[in-house]
Amino acid sequence: MHKGSGASTPKKLLVHFVMLTIGILLVSFSLWLVYLTYFKVAHRTGETLAKKAVSRLDMIYEPFHGADESVLAGSKSKSWCLKCHEDLSHSKSKEVRGMLNAHSFFMACEVCHIAPREGERFEYKWIQRGTSIPLAELKGPPGEYGGTIIPFKIEKGISRRLDENPEALQLLDESATHENDEDLQKRKMRLNTDIHKEFSPKPIFCDECHRENGPLDFSQLMYSPQRAQLLTFGEGANVIKQYKDFYLPSLMRNARRER
């Protein structure tokens, strides 16, 4: 039985056109899937995911938020706050300190440790590590963008970077050689107050940024729409919401007990 034979009518032509269009779309989609599966070298394809999973077999007990790449990349150029507060400045809570310290390697401490007062405006930019040059785009896998998220306070239309204080850096250098200098100690105390006056000892919590309309606009921070969605609503954001009580999988707990 072969339908569709016989004289062409406008209706038949329309059916052929629709079927041809759908067919082309479906074949294109199929070819794209084949390309994704076998040819695309990307962060997230079935093959790379499988390889990653297999490579993790010997790291089954590693922390859930294992962000080794971010930490290694970030440790090469850390925030100057860490000159006093040490590399792993978050140490109180065993459950969250790893994640917080990992964040400190790709964003300035002030991102979380400022408490904007009413009427105050901030903008956030990716700045190339060790420089003041804004990143033009985010290249490479997450955690290896080569930059740090820095908050800028906008006052009277002027954007001022909050993580720079040349005097403090100079003082730190002097401290190394003039530790017992009384004048230096006084300057340190004054500067300590100055540096921290815009800081809040109580930081904002993860889900204040990992949400829609939060202070960080992930699209404006040049994340791809997928990554921005992931950070706002997806895996990362959901984990943060669900991990407010920081439930650790029983496997991790057992692993700790065994050690």
Partner: peptide, 26 residues
């Protein structure tokens, strides 16, 4: 329910989910 699973199992699940979805779609 990702917060209840270790990362390793989630990576395996992700790979299987994507692989099977590709196979099914084709």
């Amino acid at each position: 329910t990702q917060s209840y699973w270790p990362k390793f199992y989630l990576d395996v699940a992700d790979a299987f989910h994507l692989g099977e979805a590709t196979l099914a779609a084709l």
